[in-house]
Simulated scan of single mutants.
Amino acid sequence: MASMSKADIGRILARQGILIAFAVFIIGFTLANERFLSPDNVMGVIRSSAILGVMALGVTFVVISGNLDLSVGSMMSFSTIVVLDLHDKIGPALAIPAMFAMTLCLGAFIGFLVGYLKLNSLIVTLGMLSAIHGLTLTYSGGQNMDIVDKEGTWFGVFGQGSALGIPVPILIFVALAALLGIVLAKTPFGRKVYAVGGNGTAATFSGIKRARVVFLCYVMSAFCVATAGLIQASRSLGSQNTVGQGLELDVLAAVILGGASLLGGSGTIFKTVIGVLILGFIQNGLLLVGLQFYVQFVVTWVIIILAVWLDIAAKRGKLWSNIA
């Protein structure tokens, strides 16, 4: 009976290791500062994490399919600058779909290179990171963008509005997470994504069109990036042309922190959301305990490594690998 009990505990740890780590972080920061779990602080953290979270949802599909996307930061800068620029030229009603169309074209191009031409996703997206950054600077003329008539536009609703007392960015994040969670877990396309990431060769021989699945994953990632760019532009009604610089690493960290494997074939939308919240609450908790920003980078890195290590250790039932 005792051995069965230990086995049951091991299975629980294997399935919920990241959630347990999240709970430990919450308890620790709550003990350090009583304001940490106040409703205003919790709502503020989730709202500030919404942009990163929306981007991470799309990248989850890419990672599960066995690929990487390091271009999302630069692509978000591009989306933000484009929609702000077009807002004053053609109005928000046309600027938003135009921005989405342009961003989806970038995602489709990356998907074509990785999916159909079978180029290495790390090399392609790393190159596109620089290329899209250059495209953004060229488009903006190296200038930041601001909406001229900030008082007379409804565009701010996506980043500044609220419904039923809940900020709109949170509602967008939750709705998109629910939708993509269903797509990944309950649809044939979701099963194909897992199959392609788990064993691409076997998936091809079983009749799955691998190139199309990879292509669609990058298009989906671009759609999420465009949504994040819309929220970012709407929140401040202006932006620097490097607003997304460096976010690709935070996005990837959130996805991996949520349990998705860099080798592909595993991960869920729900755990990606948990990974996003872990990053958000860690950074907020460190701020509340009074650490300097440069110390926060180091501590955040250590906590992320520990969380991932504990999650992997729980899955294999031991802290150390058999291979020394």
Rank of each mutant, 00 (worst) to 15 (best):
G127P: 01
S206C: 10
A211W: 11
I208R: 03
T187I: 05
S65C: 12
I123K: 03
A95Y: 11
V276S: 00
H133C: 03
H87Y: 09
K118C: 11
W320L: 15
V42M: 14
V45W: 06
L70G: 01
Y218C: 12
L288N: 01
L262M: 15
R47Y: 06
A108S: 14
A313F: 11
I166E: 10
A314E: 04
S71T: 14
L310F: 15
L113S: 05
A254V: 11
L287Y: 09
W154A: 15
G111C: 09
G290W: 13
Q283S: 13
A202Q: 01
N67G: 14
F281N: 00
F112E: 13
G258P: 11
I46T: 12
R191Q: 00
A177L: 11
V243N: 07
S261W: 09
I274N: 02
D146I: 14
S261I: 07
G246I: 07
I303L: 15
Y294G: 00
P92L: 03
T103Q: 03
P92I: 10
E34P: 03
L19Y: 13
I12A: 05
I18Q: 10
V213K: 02
E151P: 01
D40W: 07
L31A: 13
G28C: 13
G142Q: 10
K271Y: 13
W154Y: 11
G53Q: 03
G264H: 06
L257A: 13
L288M: 15
V183F: 13
Q292M: 04
I12V: 10
N33T: 03
F270Q: 10
G207C: 07
K186C: 12
L135Y: 02
G198P: 03
K209P: 01
G115I: 09
S3W: 05
